[in-house]
Design a protein around this nucleic acid. Structure first.
Lengths: 160, 160
DNA sequence: CCTTGACTTCAAGTGAGGTTGAACTTACAC
DNA sequence: GTGTAAGTTCAACCTCACTTGAAGTCAAGG
């Protein structure tokens, strides 16, 4: 048997880019697991790094942590997940991303035509699809939808 | 003089699709204003409808209410904003939407190539763009990962 | 006048995804 | 054997954009 190198929470944090507090939070949600030393400190299996990477990426894609937990629950318990397993899960994200792109494009085009029409009933244009808001963003994706609005918004405001 | 028809909060709510509580909230942030009756009830100028429409749309586009307040501050105070004024502001949103679309497309393509490559270092693929990662997160998390983007980048490089 | 519905304020709650602080313990190098 | 970096738990706090509830007031029809 090769020596199994366990990671401390600090090591896992540095390698995954997730703060220790975040890792504990993930554990509290059952997204990752850990062993404990005799002194009650967490030690992580190296496969946990991949698991954390999956969680972060799924989160970026716009899934809630609950949804990610559900997805992880479909992994086989009996063995270490293979690349195949991870791929299967990630593949399902594509339609989600496509849908989000489509929603933003719709919004953009709506905006374009409103700006182009020169009408004096701007509110009619602007409000014509008020329910789309939540629908366009998907579950809990209010903030996730925007990739880096901070920078772009700043530029946009200054450009105006 | 034509009769100036003022709107109650309920009327403005129905016409704008924003709940009364939301309108009060907007007012507390200075996004809209109101007159008061002798009995302390709000009465809204009809132009407020347009203002609310602007706020909702800007919000949909992804601006924070603070940013929207900033944008509104650039409107002329001396006169009622014209269609031109609103158009100028809305036009600035386009680059923002384009940027968001581009960001999601980047993420999607990254994902595609990761899925396609069949590598066993899924975490290398997944973590390869940690700066985007932070940007894609909510405001709370944005800080924290933004605190040390260098660390996250370092982690990504070392990961694998 | 009375009822009813719409309005008022203010504090607190929601939810997502965490972070922060206090008080304490472990791990490890010297 | 000691100093200190890194770990532990738990509750409380953070943002953002609101909503909800409590307790009370106003407006308008009959």
């Amino acid at each position: 048997m090769p020596i199994e190198r366990y990671l401390t929470i600090g090591e896992l944090s540095r390698r995954s880019g997730v703060a220790p507090s975040g890792l504990r939070y993930y554990e509290s949600l059952g997204l990752i697991g850990s062993q404990r030393t005799s002194g009650n400190q967490r030690r992580y299996d190296r496969t946990t790094l991949r698991r954390v990477a999956f969680v972060r990426t799924a989160s970026r894609v716009g899934l809630t942590l609950d949804q990610i937990a559900e997805a992880l629950a479909t992994l086989p318990e009996a063995r270490t997940p293979t690349a195949e397993d991870w791929t299967r899960l990630s593949r399902s994200w594509r339609p989600l991303l496509d849908a989000r792109i489509a929603a933003i494009e719709r919004l953009r085009d709506q905006l374009d035509s409103c700006i182009g029409c020169g009408c004096l009933s701007l509110e009619r244009c602007m409000l014509q699809n008020p329910a789309d808001n939540a629908a366009a963003l998907g579950p809990g994706a209010r903030y996730l939808e925007g990739d880096s609005p901070a920078d772009a918004a700043q530029a946009a405001i200054q450009a105006g």
